[in-house]
Amino acid sequence: MANIRQLDKRRKSVRNIRKITRTMELIATARFKKAMDRAAAATDYTKRITQIVQDLANSGASVSHPLLVAHDTVKAVDILVLTANRGLCGGYNGSLVRVAAQRRSEIQEQADAGQTSVSGKRGISAFRYAGIPIEKTYTQFDDQPSFDAVAKIADELIYRFVSGQVDRVDVAYTQFISSSKQVPVVETLLPFAGLDVSSSAGTTSAGTTSTGQESNVRDDYEFLPNASAILEEVVPASFRARLFKCFLDAAVSEQIARMVAMKSATENAGDIIKGLSRTYNRARQSKITQEIMEIIGGVEALG
């Protein structure tokens, strides 16, 4: 019976697919751990930078920098979308593209100009399909984005913002909240808001929490060459670190999404195999029964 052979063939192919998805799950798990370690290692730098900004603010220096100032009129808005190069990671790319495209149409209502840049092949093809023009594409970022490559993009954005070519920069990425929760978000990176918190409100709250023991023995820092010159450097460095963090978050979230998607695919393949085996066995048994009946019938006819 052809039906039995077909069932067996299907079961074999599902088994092969399960092998692949299981391997992909294992790979994603390993990559997730690596990406997670990298993200954890990167927090030292941001912590140190916030500390410096804190000290600058505590010493009475006014925190002002072109990157922190919002432009009076918002005419041009850039949006940077961070997606994955590869699929098979559940709703990771889809939900991010949806969020980004929605923000982009909102932007177009208020601003007439601005670039759309997309990182990741999946996002690029999704935007092309939706007919949204893309100015810049990046495909060099995988599970371990390098700081040098991110810094280049950051410097370009800084230049565009400072020179007045763009009035706001948004970035759409998947934020990593915990290993069981990642949310696609759109954040405004420029004008840079990462420092305001630590300089105004942070002087009272963070000053007592993060540096609890030190706060009673306040250090009077000496600034070389002076506080404002350091601030001039700190703000772009902090922005670069912030953008790098977005890339790291996106990379970690991608691996988690793939891990989860492949885990459920493996489980699903197991269920399908179970069902197929059952039908296969039943079909085989009924075939055997039928053949026996035929033989008995033949014997009876002879006798």
Partner: peptide
């Protein structure tokens, strides 16, 4: 050297 006064520099 050890015991340097606190400082932030470029």
């Amino acid at each position: 050297l050890p015991g340097r006064a606190p400082m932030v520099g470029r």
